[in-house]
C-alpha cells in the first residue's frame, strides 16, 4: 500500500448521532493511527461506548464520515461483514457464544468467515488460548469459566481474525476486582506488540501505562485529547480536571 502509513487507520469527521432526543455524539473529529493505543475515558453517559461502537458500525451514525483504512465504512451486506472481520471487538459482557466451547468460540470466525481449514484454525486457536493463558480450558463452555477467563477468551476470539484494530468497550467493568488485572495484563501485552487499540475504560492505571493518547469525552463531545502524562498531571480543561478530581482522590 502506497503511503499507507501516512493515512490514519480510522478517521471520524464531523460525526453526529442521536438516540431520540439525546444528542450522544456531537461533531466528533478523531483519528486513530496505526499501532496506536487510544484510551477513551469520561463520565458515564458521555458517549464513549457509542463512539467505540460506531467504528465497526454496530452503531450507525446520523451524519458525518467514518473512514477505515482510507475507505468509508460500508453501509451493509458482505462489505460490512468483511470490515467487521478486520476490526476485533471485546465487549463489557464478554458475549462468548454460550452453546460453543472455548476453542469453538475462537475458531468459528476463522473457519466460517475466512474459510480456514478446521485443523489449522484449531491449532492457531490453541496457540492464542495459550497466549492469553487459558489453553487448559479449551474444551469447556463459557459458563464454566470465571469472568476474567471469559474475557481473555473474547480477546483470543478477536485476535483469531488477525484484526487490523481491536475495539475494547469497557472490557473490565463487569469483572470482579481480583480478575481485572489478568485481563489488563493481556491488553498491555497486545499494546506492546503494536496492536492498534481503542479502549473505553475506567482503568486509569491502564491508561497511564499503555495509552499513547487519551481522549476525554463528556456530553457527547471530545473535550480533551492529550498524552496520558499531560492529561493526568496537567489537564487543560476544567471539565477534565473536575472529572479527575472525583476519581483520583481517595
Amino acid at each position: 500500500m502506497k503511503n499507507g502509513d501516512a493515512v490514519p487507520l480510522v478517521k471520524l469527521e464531523n460525526v453526529n448521532k442521536h438516540f431520540g432526543e439525546l444528542h450522544v455524539l456531537r461533531d466528533i473529529h478523531l483519528t486513530v493511527d496505526r499501532g496506536e493505543v487510544l484510551v477513551v475515558i469520561g463520565p458515564s453517559g458521555g458517549g464513549k461506548s457509542t463512539l467505540c461502537r460506531t467504528m465497526n458500525r454496530l452503531e450507525t451514525i446520523d451524519s458525518g464520515v467514518i473512514t477505515f483504512d482510507g475507505r468509508p465504512l460500508p453501509a451493509e451486506g458482505k462489505p460490512l461483514a468483511k470490515l467487521r472481520s478486520e476490526v476485533g471487538m471485546v465487549f463489557q459482557s464478554f458475549n462468548l457464544f454460550a452453546h460453543k466451547t472455548i476453542l469453538e468460540n475462537v475458531t468459528l470466525g476463522p473457519i466460517k468467515v475466512r474459510g480456514q481449514d478446521r485443523k489449522a484454525a484449531e491449532q492457531r486457536g490453541l496457540e492464542l488460548l495459550e497466549r492469553v493463558g487459558i489453553a487448559s480450558q479449551a474444551g469447556k463452555y463459557p459458563a464454566q469459566l470465571s469472568g476474567g477467563q471469559q474475557q481473555r477468551t473474547a480477546i483470543a476470539r478477536a485476535l483469531a481474525m488477525d484484526p487490523k484494530m481491536i475495539l475494547f468497550d469497557e472490557p473490565t467493568s463487569a469483572l470482579d476486582p481480583e480478575m481485572v488485572q489478568e485481563v489488563l495484563d493481556v491488553m498491555i501485552g497486545l499494546a506492546r506488540d503494536g496492536m492498534t487499540m481503542v479502549v473505553v475504560t475506567h482503568e486509569m492505571g491502564f491508561a497511564r501505562r499503555a495509552a499513547n493518547r487519551v481522549v476525554f469525552m463528556a456530553d457527547g463531545q471530545v473535550v480533551e485529547e492529550n498524552t496520558p502524562d499531560e492529561f493526568f498531571t496537567n489537564a487543560r480543561t476544567d471539565r477534565a480536571k473536575d472529572f479527575l478530581s472525583k476519581i483520583l482522590t481517595h
Binding site: 461483514a81 467487521r84 472481520s85 476485533g88 465487549f91 464478554f94 458475549n95 454460550a98 468459528l108 468467515v113
Partner: peptide, 30 residues
C-alpha cells in the same frame, strides 16, 4: 437469546444468515 450474542456474531464478520443459523437459532431451538 441475549442481544450480545448477535452483536458478537456480527462483530467477527458473520453475515446475518450465518449469525442466525450458527449462533441464534441453535440456542433458540434448545
Amino acid at each position: 437469546v441475549p442481544f450480545g450474542q448477535a452483536e458478537a456474531a456480527r462483530a467477527i464478520g458473520l453475515t446475518f444468515f450465518q449469525s442466525l443459523t450458527l449462533i441464534i437459532l441453535p440456542q433458540a431451538f434448545r
